[in-house]
Design a binder for these strands. Structure first.
Length: 336
DNA sequence: ATGGTTTTTACTGCGTC
DNA sequence: GACGCGGTAAAAACCAT
C-alpha cells in the first residue's frame, strides 16, 4: 500500500519536471532542477544551477561553469504532449533492498473496496479472493528465490573460508537447487542444507573437506549437517564414494610445508596400503595423516606427530596406529 | 536400542636436547 | 624440565542392524 502511494508522488514529481523541460526547451537557455542551488565561487551569488541537458553546473549570474560532463539523470526520450509523457514514462516506485524483491512485487489490498472506496459486488469479491490466492502462490515462489539467494550466499562464504574453487561452489549450488526443487527443505534449515550441499560438492569434486572443517565455518551443528547430508544424498541419489585418503595428502603436505618428494611418498604408501586392503573401515583422514607422517620419516623431512594431528584434526594415537599399519603393509609388499 | 568397531581422551614411561 | 614418541585402558563416537 505504501508502495503505491510512493509511486504516485515520484511519478508526479517526474512529470512536473518534464513539463518544465518541455516548456523551457524552446527558450535557448534551459533552467531546471532548481533543487540544487549552491553558492558560486566566482561571484558569490546563490544561483548555481545544474543543467542536466548539457551536463554542466552553471552560475546563473556570471555564467561560470563549475562542473562539466556530469551524468544526465533525466529521461533519454522526448515527449511532445502530456499523454505521450504518460506513455513513455518508465519510472516507478524506488526500489529498496529491505524487501527481498526490492519492493517490486504486487500487493492486493485486503479490503474489498475498489479504487474509489466503494464496496465490491459479491462476484467481484470472489474474483479478488481468487486473485489473492494466486498472488500468494507466486509470492511463495518468490520466497523460494529469496531462500535460494541466501543459501547461495552462505555457500559462497563457506567455500571461500575453506579455500574451495569455483567449480565446487557451482556444484554445491546445483545440489542445493535440486534439493529445493524436490521440496527437501521443509523441516530443515536453509543453512543446514546449504552446508550439506557444499560438503557433498567438495567430496564429489575430489577436494574433500572433513566434516569438522565444514562445521567450523558453518552456522550449523555437526550432527545436523551430517543428518541433513545423509538425507540429501539419499533423496537426490547422489553417488558419492567414500573419500580417498590420497585426496587429503596435498593439502596436509602444503600446510606442513613438506617437499614434493615427501608428498609423493605418502601417496605411494597409501597405494600399497590400499592394495593390501588395510584401509577399509578406517577413517580416510586418519590414513592420510598417518601416511604424511610416515613419509616425513622416510624422507627425513621431519614433522612431529603433533603437527600432523593439528593440520589433520586427528588424534596422535590414530596417527600412530595407522602409520604402523602403513609401514607393515609396505614391508609385506617388498618381501612377499 | 544394541553390539561391534574405530577414534579419542588421559595417563605413563622412556629417551633426547 | 620440556618435548617427542610409544603404549595402554577406558570412554566416546560411529555405524549397521
Amino acid at each position: 500500500m505504501t508502495g503505491s502511494v510512493r509511486r504516485f508522488t515520484t511519478d508526479n514529481a517526474r512529470v512536473r519536471k518534464q513539463a518544465n523541460d518541455q516548456s523551457e526547451r524552446d527558450s535557448e537557455r534551459t533552467k531546471h532542477e532548481q533543487d540544487e542551488t549552491l553558492t558560486c565561487p566566482e561571484c558569490g551569488s546563490e544561483s548555481l544551477v545544474s543543467d542536466s541537458e548539457h551536463g554542466e553546473t552553471v552560475c546563473d549570474d556570471c555564467g561560470l561553469v563549475v562542473e562539466e560532463d556530469e551524468i544526465d539523470r533525466g529521461p533519454e526520450w522526448r515527449a511532445f504532449n502530456s499523454s505521450e509523457k504518460d506513455q513513455k514514462s518508465r519510472v516507478g516506485a524506488p526500489t529498496t533492498n529491505m524487501m527481498h524483491d526490492k519492493g517490486l512485487s504486487t500487493n492486493i489490498g485486503w479490503q474489498n473496496k475498489d479504487a474509489y472506496g466503494r464496496s465490491l459486488s459479491s462476484r467481484q469479491r470472489e474474483k479478488m479472493q481468487r486473485l489473492r490466492t494466486w498472488n500468494e502462490r507466486f509470492r511463495t515462489r518468490d520466497s523460494k528465490e529469496r531462500n535460494l539467494k541466501q543459501a547461495l550466499g552462505e555457500i559462497d562464504r563457506m567455500a571461500s573460508a575453506l579455500g574451495l574453487p569455483d567449480n565446487v561452489r557451482e556444484t554445491a549450488s546445483v545440489i542445493y537447487r535440486r534439493a529445493l526443487n524436490d521440496d527437501l527443505l521443509p523441516g530443515r534449515s536453509i543453512e543446514g542444507v546449504a552446508t550439506s550441499s557444499l560438503y557433498a560438492a567438495a567430496r564429489m569434486a575430489g577436494t574433500p573437506r572433513s566434516l569438522d572443517e565444514i562445521t567450523n565455518v558453518s552456522r550449523v551443528e555437526k550432527d545436523e549437517i551430517a543428518r541433513t547430508y545423509r538425507y540429501v544424498v539419499r533423496e537426490l541419489k547422489l553417488e558419492i564414494q567414500p573419500a580417498d585418503p590420497e585426496q587429503y595428502v596435498p593439502r596436509f603436505a602444503s600446510d606442513l610445508g613438506l617437499a614434493d618428494e615427501t608428498e609423493r611418498r605418502a601417496r605411494q604408501l597409501l597405494k600399497t596400503a590400499k592394495k593390501q586392503g588395510v584401509h577399509s573401515g578406517k577413517s580416510p583422514v586418519g590414513l592420510a595423516a598417518a601416511a604424511v607422517y610416515a613419509a616425513s620419516l622416510l624422507t627425513n623431512d621431519k614433522v612431529t606427530q603433533n603437527e600432523v594431528s593439528e593440520v589433520a584434526n586427528i588424534s596422535e594415537v590414530t596417527i600412530r596406529n595407522r602409520y604402523h599399519e602403513l609401514l607393515e603393509a609396505e614391508e609385506q609388499i617388498q618381501t612377499p
